[in-house]
């Protein structure tokens, strides 16, 4: 049962052709999503997605660019360095959701060259990070930007992000805590996320679970197992913790490279404790 088997009957060639044509915006929009979902890493697919980032045809009633949003999301899932400059350009889009998708995709592509462009969007600091009147969002996609900076950046970003720990929105505070932990390795930041696991809002507890799993903060394992949320999400978070415990702290490479160095006899006591917690949640 592969991903492809679950897909609607669209072939790779058909999806690329649908993305290249401009007569039917609906087909084009769906093809952009499909190509990302099934990671069609083909030069023609990438070229067509880059072209879609310039689309002027597909507009939402509020002036947004739905096709560009999907294309920007898809490019984060494909392995192409060509996408980075195009996504950086998207960070200046008038469409909030295009900027958000671009920031998330730049994080996934892992190129530190995106840092200055992302940092520009934090201009004005936390004082400028206010809601847009009549919209359900802030002036910038702060969560996505801060998370991307945490993944791609280095310690000089710390003073830029610290003020966001005091933002009014708990999601922004979580993103800042996660990024600061990634940038500094200081437990005090990860502990802020652990505190969120005890808050009354399920949505926030889930997001803290995902953040702690993404950074693999080992001391949180017990709190993750006990928090009130679905076992499925706790298991994903504990998988992140376990994989960090199995990898040396400085390991930045891909799992395939790690496999060559994997010493199957080197299970540490904390890794075994995490697995015991996972067993209890199955």
């Amino acid at each position: 049962m592969s991903d492809i088997a679950d897909a609607p009957p669209l072939t790779i060639d058909q999806a690329i052709a649908n993305l290249q044509q401009t007569d039917d915006p609906g087909l084009r929009y769906y093809a952009a999503w499909w190509i990302g979902r099934f990671r069609v890493n083909h030069p023609d697919a990438i070229a067509a997605l880059l072209a879609a980032l310039e689309d002027e045809q597909d507009r939402s009633p509020d002036g947004g660019y739905p096709l560009r949003r999907n294309a920007a999301r898809a490019l984060g899932k494909l392995d192409s360095s060509l996408a980075v400059p195009a996504l950086l350009k998207c960070l200046d889009s008038s469409d909030y959701y295009v900027r958000e998708a671009a920031a998330q995709s730049l994080e996934m592509l892992g190129d530190p060259a995106a840092v200055p462009g992302l940092l520009n969007l934090l201009a004005g600091g936390v004082e400028a990070a206010i809601a847009v009147p009549d919209k359900p969002h802030l002036v910038q996609p702060y969560n996505a930007i801060i998370e991307a900076l945490g993944t791609l950046g280095d310690w000089p970003l710390v003073p830029e992000i610290i003020p966001f720990l005091d933002h009014d929105q708990p999601q922004v505070r979580n993103a800042a805590a996660r990024a600061l932990y990634q940038l500094t390795g200081k437990p005090e930041y990860a502990e802020r996320l652990v505190e969120v696991l005890y808050c009354p809002d399920l949505q926030l507890r889930r997001s803290a679970l995902m953040d702690l799993g993404a950074v693999g903060y080992g001391p949180a394992a017990g709190a993750i197992a006990r928090t009130l949320a679905e076992n499925s999400m706790k298991l994903i978070a504990l998988k992140g913790v376990l994989e960090r415990q199995l990898c040396p702290d400085d390991f930045e490479g891909r799992l395939e490279d790690y496999a060559k160095r994997f010493d199957p006899l080197s299970l540490s006591a904390p890794a075994i404790e995490t697995m015991a917690l996972m067993d209890s949640l199955l």
């Binding site: 994989e243 890794a271 996972m278």
Partner: peptide
Amino acid sequence: DEVLAVRARAQW
């Protein structure tokens, strides 16, 4: 196994 956590559990 392509997932490190699964490999580790098999090892344990």
